[in-house]
Amino acid sequence: MSKSTDERHALEPELTAKLKQQSEQLVESVHAGDYSRAMAMISELAEVRNQGLYHEVGRLTRSLHEARRNFQIDPRNPEQQEALSKMTDASDRLEYVVKMTGEAANRTMDLVEESMPVARHLQDEAQDLHQQWQRLRRRDMEPTEFRELHARMDQFLVALSTDAGKLYGNLSEVLLAQDYQDLTGQVIQNVITLVRKVEDNLVSLVVMAGHVDQLTGTVHQIEDNQPSAEQGVGPQIMPEQRKDVLSGQDDVDDLLSSLGF
């Protein structure tokens, strides 16, 4: 890994050969006391450096053009720039995913909230009728009560059929409400492909820019912009592979009880 990085960051062999040769000649001239030749060598060395720099800046510019073309941004029309940018498209697509998943969740919850009282009512009625039925079996029932039970049983069987049909219909709709997964899955796959492409292009731009940095001797101070744990960082992906993340409620409970909870 580090070897391939070194190779990518290496300057052109032609350039390094010239640099070596001329710096040796420079040292020789200084030792021999030939200062005017030494000065001429220094200016030639600067020339080699500048040429290398122009070459790398040229390459960097070409790569930038290339990258911009890959992202399909048309620079000639500033208004269309945004509209044509695939990145903007990606954000829209992700917003569509948020919308679709939100709608599906709400649709599902609507149906569940509608079904739960139906099921609860059937349960209550069945329990009550069962008690009455047992009284009948024990022959512990007045004839008027029996006539009442008879009528109620009839109503219950009709309601049971209607309500079960209602529950079945709601469950089918819950099933259908999950169809977002197919659509959002495809959208997310597309966005993943785009992000990978952007990352690849950025990596090659960074390599190019690294050559320019080498020629100009620039060292960057890169700040580490980690999201703050106090604000919250959201769900952890693959917690089992990370030591600083707990992988479930049991781990959380263990940690809290070790803290005296």
Partner: peptide, 13 residues
């Protein structure tokens, strides 16, 4: 919450 880092849970406690 989805926050599952050890440090965060200790901080909340």
């Amino acid at each position: 919450t989805a926050e599952a880092k050890r440090d965060q849970i200790v901080a909340a406690a």
